[in-house]
Design a protein around this nucleic acid. Sequence first.
DNA 1: AAGACGAAAGTGGTTGA
DNA 2: TCAACAACTTTCGTCTT
Length: 318
Amino acid sequence: MAKEQEEKRECPECQGRLYRDYARGELICGSCGLVINEKQIDRGPEWRAFDSQERDRRARTGAPINPLLHDKGLSTEIGWKDRDASGSFLPMKKRSQMYRLRQWQRRIRVSGAIERNKMLAFQEIGRVAARLELPKYVKEDAAQIYTRTAERNLIRGRSIESVAAASLYAACRMNHLPRTLDEIAQESTVNRKHIGRTYRLLMRELKMSLEPTSPVDYIPRFCGMLELGRDVELKAIKIIEMAIQQDFTSGRGPTGVAASAIYIATTLMNKRRTQREIAEVTGVTEVTIRNRYKEMVGRLGLEKKMKKAVGVDEDGTV
DNA sequence: AAGACGAAAGTGGTTGA
DNA sequence: TCAACAACTTTCGTCTT
């Protein structure tokens, strides 16, 4: 579990809760995924020069690594200008030579099935991640997972899209900003079944193991979609934590648990939403919400409180 | 009329022989 | 590989607000 902690500030975009992720030094909005304070990476030189001569001797070594570029942004480009280093035009012979050099450079850079593959895949990851409003670091993790998959020749026989989608799904879970398989499948060209199957393969082959998604991770985002305040979020989280503690949460779908916790929280706090509304955003059916919440209310002994809450609602008190 | 309820049958995925 | 199984969905008729 990453060390995350609630912040006092609100998300400027959606007023959702902000979490501080100390491992990354960032503020993250739990509802919309906005990254408020990216870790301050010092892109300047990591040394001080006392005169220009010294500055020249200590060149900063290259551009920052960007995992979203297929070659991590580290390869060389040959400039296109037909001039030499001092700026004068090149003779015809040299010019054609340079042209061939450039040609080769390009070919080498995007050479081989793997590099070409990664370019397409990263494009796909970027596209889907953008539609799901995921922060940059999730994309980067997905790109890294994809790269590892490619290096082990696991893409053969599988579509780029399915592996890209599965990588993104895994990256979301790793970063506690889970998206359901359905949500990813909706933006991907691949169906849920395939993504799920590929995801399981990745886990097995890359020897990764992610703990099952906690329903709590879904709460901020779902509550945001339902335009519920933080008080309701906290209540829902508290309910889930009690349920987890009493161990009747295992084997149940995390989205179903999250959905019914939200349902209970909204009625207890007089901000009622219909089962239909909650079912819509959480991607489970009303029936599941009913079953889950009946179960939870029973085991947590919340019957009187629920009845009372409904009664208060009648009075018109809000 | 809309929402909540629950029974019954169907679906897809996991597990264990 | 197959069957058993639990969770979840679909569908639909009924009750409550």
